[in-house]
């Protein structure tokens, strides 16, 4: 029933949650806590045992790239990409730079000034 389905997503109907991504037939989760703009980079070009999705992720991440850009590049939902990335990182096939610097504390004056200057120069 359309009306009911619609109601599932109304604020009044309760909280919305991200589902655990089901990949490779198992339910897995992002164990690292990747942010949208966490930067990742592959340390290898290939690994034999990988699922096709993970291999594609490895391939688009040969240069540092943000989590959200990886998702757009491989055309998979964000949280699926986060799970696959977190597996790849755990397997030492990729490394990441946490965006923590900007999420837990105020950005440094130096960064703010660089952003302002950068926009001015556009």
């Amino acid at each position: 029933m359309t009306a009911d389905q619609e109601a599932w997503f109304d604020d009044a109907a309760g909280p919305l949650v991200r589902p655990y991504a089901v990949t490779g037939g198992r339910t897995r989760s992002d164990t690292i806590g990747l942010d949208l703009i966490t930067l990742v980079v592959a340390v290898r070009e290939h690994a034999d045992h990988l699922e096709p999705e993970s291999l594609r992720i490895l391939q688009v991440s040969q240069k540092p790239i943000s989590v959200v850009e990886v998702a757009a590049a491989v055309n998979l939902p964000l949280q699926v990409v986060k799970v696959l990335l977190s597996d790849l990182i755990t397997q030492n096939l990729m490394i990441y730079r946490s965006a923590m610097q900007t999420t837990t504390q105020a950005p440094s004056p130096h960064v703010l000034q660089a952003v302002l200057d950068g926009i001015r120069k556009l």
């Binding site: 599932w8 309760g14 919305l16 850009e69 998702a71 939902p77």
Partner: peptide
Amino acid sequence: PLRTEELITEASAGVDDLSGVESKHTTT
């Protein structure tokens, strides 16, 4: 502008078994 999608599932109260692969209502 690049585009990406996030899956959204309806939360059901008291779900403690996350291993199930039930398909809840999902949208993007």
